[in-house]
Design a protein around this nucleic acid. Sequence first.
DNA 1: GCCAACGTTGGC
DNA 2: GCCAACGTTGGC
Length: 151
Amino acid sequence: MRYWLMKSEPDTFSIDDLERVGTEPWNGVRNYQARNFMRDGMRPGDGVLFYHSNCAEPGVIGLAEVASEAYPDPTQFDRSSDYFDPKSTPEQPRWVLVDVAFKRKLGRTITLAELKAEPRLEGFALVQRGNRLSVLPVTKAQWDCILSLER
DNA sequence: GCCAACGTTGGC
DNA sequence: GCCAACGTTGGC
């Protein structure tokens, strides 16, 4: 089992939205590195830290789980979608997604500031300068460390 | 293949 | 709202 962190802007799709729907196709990822993590790295059952970005209190807010293998993101073929990609075809799709299932909300937000201040998280991609990846791998040690901060 | 211009992300 | 970081595009 592997571990991941996935960012979402709460104004667009929050942990409460995920709780409401239960499972959500994680569409709209248009970065090759993030795509490759979903396509080549993720397996159903993998753990996901749900991260709120671009908001008043950025940080880890909940836990989720990878709920499918990667499959083509249908929004890339949809002309009316913001995520439409004219260079993508059903025969040769560029972009994939996985389904993400709600597990639980954390008791509180574990803020980015806390994560940056935690010595054990030195080298964690999220806290490195200028990292904009929306899907990134988390080691077991990092996962355990972050969850130990909850209480 | 280089690199300037441009667009996006996301913290602050 | 600002702006640093950084990925992508396209001219050459």
